[in-house]
Nucleic acid binder design. Structure first.
Lengths: 138, 138
DNA sequence: GCAACGCGCAACCATTGGGTTGCACCTTCT
DNA sequence: AGAAGGTGCAACCCAATGGTTGCGCGTTGC
């Protein structure tokens, strides 16, 4: 089993695979295939500011970029950009309400990614113990 | 309830005790306290090449930067740098054997991060349902 | 001892990406 | 209608970072 564990979510990636999903689509709910969704989540989560945004967003339940920017050390535009990334990763969703754009968090993808990560960790574990067995002349 | 859920790993929480391990050859060795261990893992995992390296490494059980570079589309030096990052994140460890420096993966941190992520997802979930209840006049 | 292999360090380049500012456009309130 | 509040788009800046090449040095093997 070559890449059995599969640490790489993009395995068999499509170079031009721009999912291009919009916000309101409620995409978070749909059962994702897995694929590069995990990769997107990982890189989205890699940024500290983005994590803080998610944190604040989860705390508010629902909030606008302006509100979020007010309690973060960055401009509204920065927040907007981050929300864009988070949306593309399927971690948040936004809908327009009158003159404001409210966002909220979507737990789904995070759970999926957590499970993926757990699987990989388990795979590493078994791989390591298998190798250990071999090394010990088992 | 400020940062109740705590999406931010650096927020002052220490995940399970870090397996105090140092690595040798990589250079730098991960000496992080453990609070931002999750953050380090996330940013380490954010890079595709790094994920492929981890994948290849897990498949080999143990390998040198040269070997890894041979099956990846990057130079040995690039691999070395990545291994440095991975080492600092506590995802791999390396030891010198004669004239070669062999690396292997460490499942621990990945598991820790997976659990952290799961907790956050759960927190988001309960927050959302709580808000939903309120909204429905419950 | 000498050549070959492998590693680590350092300099350097190009791109990405987080952040800011400025501006035009659409709602809401008076 | 007009002012105020809020969003979205675009241009621009700068630091971080992934990647490369070149070189010196320890290790192994002939």
């Amino acid at each position: 089993m070559t890449t059995g564990g599969g640490t790489e979510p993009d395995a068999g990636r499509a170079p031009s695979g721009d999912a291009g999903r919009g916000s309101g689509a409620g995409g978070g709910s749909g059962a994702d295939a897995g694929g590069d969704a995990v990769a997107e989540v990982l890189s989205a989560l890699a940024d500290p500011t983005r994590r803080r945004i998610l944190d604040a967003l989860a705390a508010h339940g629902e909030a606008t970029a302006t509100v979020l920017a007010a309690e973060l050390p960055v401009s509204r535009q920065a927040v907007v950009k981050h929300l864009g990334v988070l949306d593309r990763a399927g971690l948040v969703t936004g809908h327009r309400e009158g003159r404001e754009a409210r966002y909220r968090v979507i737990p789904e993808r995070l759970g999926v990614t957590a499970r993926w990560m757990d699987r990989v960790a388990a795979a590493w574990d078994s791989r390591l113990s298998a190798i250990k067995r071999l090394a010990e002349g088992g």
